[in-house]
Simulated assay, not measured.
Amino acid sequence: MNEARALEKAYLRLNREMSGRIYRNVSMAKQVTVRTGGPVAILAVANTISDLRLLLQTADRYRIPYFVLGKGSNLLVSDKGYKGIAIELGSDFKKISLDRHCIQAGAATSLSTLAQVAWKNSLNNLTFSVGIPGTLGGALVMNAGAHDGCMSNIVSTVTIYTHNCELQILNKTELGFGYRTSSIPSYGIIVEAMLKLEPGNQNRIRFLMERYFRKRKETQPFEHPSAGCVFKNTSGISAGKLIDGVGCKGWRIGDAEVSTKHANFIVNLGGATATDIYKLIKEVQLKVYREKGVLLEPEINILGEFKDE
């Protein structure tokens, strides 16, 4: 079965069971924070585990790739689009409950919401997440962090919906956490997680949250769309300092620009294509490698086809 036929059959099957939550050829420019990119073949809003089962079984049956969209905050999708299924986790995956110093939360819960819940309940250790865009699931997959804190420091267990359509609870030691990485995608899709926090002073927690958010606004280019930090730091060296050190700040291809405020951000000045951004990523990588001997590794996820020149 060819690709187009497989996608059509998959859409018809899904639309019968999930009518009103299945969409065709949705522009990713409205779904990702960098505000550019081509269409995804199928966008599905999964509100329940049953929805996830149907989606994964359909993807397997018709051999269609899929990914979990989250808030699209570290994602670049090709101008040609993505010939697969984008899964957005809905209502059942946004629930939050507290048990003393632990927060149990669905994978689609935003980090900003979790930080507010922790503060209101005088729970420490989530202040580092203030201002980090995205969901709990995405933050765990990439072990997001800042201000000497990261997700692997506070997670206790993660519940995964496996590629074989089974629920599996994994503890922290099984998740392969590293710097901005984890082994979670090899298991399946995060549906919820337990975060183990510590009691703290509510006023102190609020003070740190406000300070960290203020610092982000002062040092990062909030005035233009972006996909967040483009590259991972390497061997304890800031990617932004490496990029700035070789003179890449302000480089432009089309309306894609290496931010003059923070060199590890590539911003969309209004009309940037995904290709513009991708080419600029490659140009920066090449410049840093030639002058510093360091090959920067992208922190953002890149989906679809891009042409390397």
Rank of each mutant, 00 (worst) to 15 (best):
T109K: 04
A86T: 08
Y82H: 04
S122M: 03
L114M: 11
A86W: 03
K120Q: 15
S78Q: 08
T113E: 14
N121Q: 13
L111R: 06
G72N: 11
T109V: 15
S78H: 07
S112E: 15
A118F: 05
T109Y: 00
C102D: 13
I85C: 02
R100F: 01
S97Q: 11
Y82G: 07
S73P: 12
Y82S: 06
I96R: 09
V68T: 07
K83N: 13
S112D: 14
G70N: 10
D99Y: 12
G90H: 03
A108P: 05
K94W: 01
I87E: 02
G81R: 05
D79M: 08
S110R: 12
G90W: 03
L89Y: 12
K83Y: 03
A86E: 08
V77R: 03
T109F: 02
K83E: 12
S91K: 15
C102P: 00
L114Y: 10
A115F: 01
K80H: 09
T113D: 13
I103S: 07
A115C: 14
K95Y: 02
T113M: 10
I103L: 09
G70P: 04
D92W: 03
H101Y: 13
L111H: 07
D99H: 14
F93M: 03
V77W: 02
S112I: 04
L123Y: 10
G70R: 08
F93P: 03
S97V: 12
N74I: 10
S91T: 13
S110A: 12
G106R: 02
G84V: 01
G84D: 04
W119S: 07
A86P: 10
L75W: 04
L111P: 08
G72V: 12
S73V: 06
L76S: 06
D79G: 11
A86K: 06
L75T: 14
L69I: 11
G81H: 04
S112V: 03
A105G: 08
S91A: 13
L89A: 07
T113F: 09
Y66S: 05
S78G: 10
E88R: 15
R100I: 05
S112R: 12
C102N: 14
L75F: 01
G106H: 00
K83P: 06
V77A: 01
G84F: 01
A118V: 12
I87H: 03
K95A: 09
A115E: 10
G84S: 04
D79H: 10
D92K: 01
